[in-house]
């Protein structure tokens, strides 16, 4: 009898397994269901504000934001059709295009504040470190969240600009959340870190020696919302509505920093005092293509791409 119970349970499991994995539900009342993949960090506040303020709903879009646990899933997620749109940095998008995954930027994401020493990302060194400027990073080990991406290319650029030899800088991969502790303990000579971990590191006694984004370009576009060429070709109206909602959200976020801080309390788990303390990035409604070209040039110089990136081709709309 007992054996039969177990066998029945097994059979039920098989049935349950075959029953799973249904199709996507559509909005029901005619709203178009859209899935957007985005890592839950400060940079994507405008996306969450757009949902919160009904900017997508106004255009008949029912947007579900899926938290990705890292930028790495964004491009494969869009390529596989899991996400209609996703948030990713321009370096990753140019690399994806180079690798034959044609991603298209449909809305701007996030940009540097353009102020030295007051950007939302920067290079920090431990308290009492002999390193005082980017040039001093020669021979040092710098932590970045991903190798061969926007972190190491822009840090090398800062070293080069400061008169140092970028080839003499060692990079190691470390997740952002682990950087403040690594810097405080002196496990790395320096770290390229973004908010909220920049503030955490500085509160822990670290010193900021350079603003690598600002060094690269005073209006540097760092990341953007993108889709695949396939979605762009198949649903141009959907893309246009998404773009228009995001444009409005970016303008709203740029004009209302207190709203950005409020929404951070909703979709992240950041401490309220930390939210008040961090430096917010800039959210210009349009990408700065000249700065993206700068990034492309740095990538080519550092050998991240096989072919010279075509920056204009990255954007859905011609500039």
């Amino acid at each position: 009898m007992r054996h039969r119970t177990l066998a029945a349970a097994g059979a039920a499991a098989v049935l349950a397994a075959s029953g799973c994995g249904g199709g996507e539900p559509d909005g029901g009342d005619g709203a178009r269901a859209v899935t957007v993949g985005a890592i839950p960090i400060v940079d994507v506040a405008p996306l969450h504000l757009a949902v919160d303020q009904g900017l997508f709903a106004d255009r008949g879009l029912e947007v579900e934001v899926v938290n990705t646990s890292g930028g790495a899933q964004a491009v494969p997620g869009v390529a596989s059709g899991d996400f209609d749109f996703a948030f990713g940095n321009v370096t990753s998008l140019l690399v994806a295009r180079d690798a034959g995954l044609p991603m298209k930027v449909v809305a701007n994401g996030v940009a540097t504040t353009g102020e030295q020493g007051a950007d939302f990302g920067g290079i920090v060194v431990p308290e009492d470190s002999p390193i005082e400027s980017a040039q001093d990073l020669e021979g040092a080990t710098v932590a970045v969240n991903n190798l061969e991406n926007i972190g190491d290319t822009t840090v090398r650029n800062s070293v080069r600009k400061d008169g140092g030899d970028p080839a003499a800088v060692e990079f190691m991969e470390l997740p952002f959340p682990d950087m403040p502790a690594a810097v405080e303990k002196g496990e790395v000579d320096a770290a390229w870190v973004v908010e909220p971990f920049l503030t955490t590191a500085l509160d822990g006694g670290a010193t900021e020696i350079a603003s690598n984004f600002v060094d690269a370009h005073p209006r540097l576009t760092i990341a953007a919302y993108f889709t695949s060429e396939q979605v762009l070709a198949e649903a141009p109206e959907l893309v246009a509505d998404f773009t228009s909602a995001m444009d409005e959200a970016l303008a709203y976020a740029e004009a209302n920093p207190e709203e950005v801080r409020r929404i951070l309390g909703e979709y992240t788990e950041m401490d309220q005092t930390l939210i008040e303390e961090i430096r917010l990035p800039s959210f210009p409604p349009a990408a700065d293509r000249e700065s993206v070209q700068t990034i492309a040039d740095l990538m080519e110089e550092d050998g991240l791409v096989e072919e010279t990136p075509d920056v204009e081709a990255l954007f859905a709309e011609s500039g």
Partner: peptide
């Protein structure tokens, strides 16, 4: 697991 990852990227150590 995902909640851990969100908490981590928010620097919320106790969580």
């Amino acid at each position: 697991g995902q909640q851990i990852s969100v908490a981590q990227s928010s620097g919320a150590a106790p969580l």
